[in-house]
Write a protein that binds this DNA or RNA. Sequence first.
RNA 1: GACCCUAUCGUCUAGCGGUUAGGACACCGCCCUUUCACGGCGGUAGCGCGGGUUCGAUUCCCGCUAGGGUCGCCA
Length: 581
Amino acid sequence: MQQSPYPPLCPHRIPYPFSVAAAILAAVEGGILLPGENARLFGDLQIAGHFGVCVGLFCRAGCPALRQARRPPLRCSAAIAKSGNCLFAGSDSESLPVHHQACQRRKAIGILRPILTKPTDEMNVRVRFAPSPTGFLHIGGARTALFNWLYARHTGGTFILRIEDTDVARNTQEAVEVILNGLGWLGLDWDEGPIEVGSSRCDDRTPQRGVPTSKGAHGPYFQSQRTRIYQQRVQELKDKGLAYDHEGAVKFKMTREPIVIPDLIVGDVTRELTDRERLDPDFVIVRSDGQPVFHLVNVIDDLEMGITHVVRGEDHLSNTAKHIALFRAFGVEPPKYAHIPLILNPDGTKMSKRDQGASLTSYLEEGYAPEAVVNYLCLLGWSPKDNREVVPIQEVVQMFDLPQVLRHNARFDLDKLHWLNGEYIRLMSNERFYELAIPALKRAGFDTSKFPSPYVKAALDTCKGKKRLFSELADYGGFYFVEEVTYDPEAAAKDFTPENRERLKKLRDAFAALSSFDAASLENCLKETAKQLGVKAGALVHPTRLACTGKTAGPSLYHLLEVLGKDKVMQRLQRALTVMG
RNA sequence: GACCCUAUCGUCUAGCGGUUAGGACACCGCCCUUUCACGGCGGUAGCGCGGGUUCGAUUCCCGCUAGGGUCGCCA
């Protein structure tokens, strides 16, 4: 393989919105990357910037040109550099023939545009996932968490988990754990928020019984523990004359003017008042029972926690006007918003709690690998743009950016996830396969701990890549872990014939005489026996498989025989002969 | 009812004014394989409709239609 002219990867975390290509330039130049505004506009071209000095042209990370280019991309002239502007040239500009060829782009773009805004250290991204503990984690919520996490990891920012447990009635410790476990299963680690279940950090302090504890400097991260903060903020609004008591509740004096919501994904959205809102634009922020409502606490927490980017489902887009008004009422500029599209049912309707596949837990139970689920979720509304489907999460982290997230809703395609899971199983290490397979077998009632570890591993090795779901493994390879197999009745009727009995007897004797019980010897032996009997190999293969596994389909026959070992195979053949007789 | 978002094969997507509209899942053939899979080759299938702008629109603009979201003392 040809040595790449570029260093492997920038060792620093790269701020929004630059791609790997830009990161490489930064590494080469020792420079700093700064945010641009129009990454989306320019398709697969990206500008890399060096604090008011130097820029270059790149294709996006997945572009083959990146790998094929034989020399570093051009830099713009000193004059342009001094002006603080960036040169943006089309890939068919004659200076970049390699890019042109690889990209097959035809359009030349020539744009001069200042893109340098703030120094990097002012761009400390802080994002949060703020679920309500309802007792389950919605797949859409999981993707929202994923996109937040991706953005935090891409920018080197902070990912915060906040539990919106204002609704005391349905809020339980178990419900919180569903969320923590779900995120943990997906591998989405958070920098601030509740302490993970079973974490050793629990020992640092002795938490008050029943009171959840948090990590991070902006806590607590449970809304139920932040009531003082809300009370103070409500008073602030009252003092400013922006909130007032109304029938026992507190209402916020909402602006009558349309509010522009700048959105990183959707663009600028001007939100007019609806007819009902025109009648009374003010809305309740504290209920008559004293409980603050979602809009209020959400804004206060984002404000207090220094959230810089709100990445959430598009179902919140209309509400964002209220949130922006609230931020302004507190005298603060709102964070940047990014509303990601929703995940719909296969029939295009909104996915609700009861719908098939809505709960993240179901994917664990049904035998999906978390890395496959994460990969699939990444592909819903985002694309690496290079025709790949299997994309390692680390690469997604490098490439992911908010402006490239699609704006339309996506339907959940279980078939594709199913396929992707199969791909992941095939690609994963054997160790990882055991790690996921053994608990799956246990869930199905097969306790592999009763068998020697080498046997279990060898058995599982013959199953890897054959099935797409771990939940299917029990049916497929369960015969390794039972005393006595159960014969498929239909197959038994077909294959356990008197004629086959004689053949199988002959095969058993031939097997018994084998000195080496390995797959190759077994295959030779079986074929030789078939030859002597004057039958096709299939005539022996099918009854043998049925006798040893009870099924018509399964792992490679010779390999499974080897794994079972001579004793078990003899035993099972004998039993089949008895049954046949 | 009002407000907001969206619109490429059945599904997920690439596409950023000139393409034989590319890939993947699913589906259908054939090959490989005496199980089941994997793999290989090929196929069916798409720019919602109507107006503009333009020499030229899948691509830009407007309208319509359709889908989704929001308008709570739910989150």
